[in-house]
Amino acid sequence: MILDVDIRHRQGGFALDACFQSDGRLTALFGPSGSGKTTIVNAVSGLVRPDHGRIAVQGRVLVDTKNDIVVPKHKRRIGYVFQEGRLFPHLDVRYNLLFGRWFTPRGERKASFDHVVDLLGIAHLLDRRPSTLSGGEKQRVAIGRALLADPHLLLMDEPLASLDEARKAEIYPYIERLRDEGGVPIVLVSHSVAEIARLATSVVVLSEGQVIASGPAAEVLRHTGFFAQSGLTEAGALIEARVSRHDEAYDLTVLQARAGTLSVPSLLHPVGTSLRVCLRARDIILSLKAPEGMSALNVLPGLISSIDIGEGASVDVQLDCGGDPVVARVTRKSVEELGLRPGVAVHAIIKSIAFDPEALGVTGGENM
C-alpha cells in the first residue's frame, strides 16, 4: 500500500476525520476549499501533527499516536511542491535543483540529475534565474528540486492553481511523464475535476472534513453526485483509447476505444498513442434508436447497467459500451418517457466539440 491514512484532527472550528488507502501512482485529493485536503498533506509531510491516528507511506509508519510514533518531518523523505514554486531567487535553476540533494545522505542518493532534467524538459533553463521563468517553468523546477531529494512520496498542493490555461497545458504532459516514468508516487491536491480526470489514477473525495468516496479514478469520477458541490459539470466516465488515424481533410483525429471509434478535434499525438478520455456526463444524449440525419459524429451503442436516482431533476444513467463504462446525465422525465431501465439497449451520442484537446491526457497504460 502506497498511502494509508486514518487520522482525526481538530483545528479551531474545523474537524478532520479522514480514513483512506491508495495504491495509485497519482492519488488526487479532491474537494472544495475547507474540505481538509491541505490538512491531510500537511499531516503526511509533518507540517501538522494529527491529534489521533496513523499514517504510513509505502509500509513505513510515519505517525501512530496510539504507539507514540511521530517521525520528524526532516526524516520522512517526503517531497512537497506548493502552489508557488518557492525557488531561491539568488540561485540559478541548476543550483535550485541541486539544493534538493542536500536533504539526502550521499549514500542514499538514487535520482539522476540528468534524468530528472530530461523528464521535466528543463535542460535549457539551467543557467537562468527564477525571475526570468514563466509560472509553468518555475513549477517544473520546483518539482525537479523535490525529486532530487529522493522522496518516497511527492506531495503537490494545487501546483497548477496559480497558472493560466496556457501554462497549465504546458505543464500537464510533464506531470503525466512524472506519473508514468518518475518512479515516485504522487499525491495531488486539486479542486478541478478536469485536472484529476486527466492526471489521477486514484481519487479521494472530501467534504467538510470527511472522506465521501475513494478508489480508482475511473470508478469514482463516473458518480457525478460526489462532485455536486464544485465539479458536477466536468464529472463523467474515463475510458482508454488509442490514436487510430488523423483525418487531415476535416482536421480531426480518430480514436479507437473498446466502446467504438471517437472523432475529436485534431491532436498532435502520433498514431498508436494511448490516451485517457473523459466523456462528461452532461455532454451525452441517449437515443433508443441509432440516430439518422444528425451532425454528431460519435455514437456509441451500449446497454444500461444501472440508473442512479438522486435528488433533483437529473438522473445518472450508467452504460456498458463494449466493456467501457459511460455515464449520461439526463432528466427524470427523459427516463420515464423513454422507458429507460437496466438492460435496455441505447445509443450514447457525443458531439466532437465536447472534447477539449487539452483535457485528453496521455497514459502510460495504467489501470485508471
Rank of each mutant, 00 (worst) to 15 (best):
V57P: 12
V57E: 06
Q58E: 09
G59Q: 10
R60P: 14
V61C: 08
L62N: 03
L62T: 14
V63H: 00
D64E: 08
D64Y: 13
T65E: 05
N67P: 11
I69E: 07
V70D: 07
V70W: 03
V70H: 02
V71N: 03
V71F: 05
P72L: 03
K73I: 13
H74I: 13
K75H: 09
K75M: 14
I78G: 01
Y80S: 01
V81F: 05
F82Q: 10
Q83R: 10
E84P: 09
F88V: 12
P89H: 03
P89Y: 02
L97H: 00
L98R: 15
F99K: 01
F99P: 09
F99E: 08
F99T: 09
G100V: 13
R101K: 12
R101Y: 06
F103C: 00
F103Q: 05
T104A: 02
P105Q: 01
R106S: 07
G107E: 14
G107C: 09
G107P: 08
G107A: 04
E108Y: 09
R109H: 02
R109D: 01
R109Q: 13
R109M: 09
K110P: 06
K110Q: 11
V116R: 04
V117L: 11
D118G: 11
L119D: 07
L120S: 04
L120Y: 07
L120R: 05
G121F: 07
I122K: 03
A123K: 10
A123G: 10
A123F: 01
H124K: 09
H124L: 07
H124T: 08
L125N: 04
L125G: 04
L126Y: 08
L126W: 11
R129E: 06
P130G: 00
S131L: 11
S131I: 09
T132F: 00
T132R: 02
L133Y: 01
L133N: 02
S134W: 04
S134M: 11
S134C: 07
S134N: 10
G135T: 13
G135E: 13
G136A: 04
E137K: 01
E137H: 03
K138F: 04
K138S: 08
Q139G: 06
Q139L: 11
R140F: 05
V141H: 00
V141W: 05
V141D: 00
A142W: 12
A142M: 11
I143F: 03
G144L: 12
A146G: 03
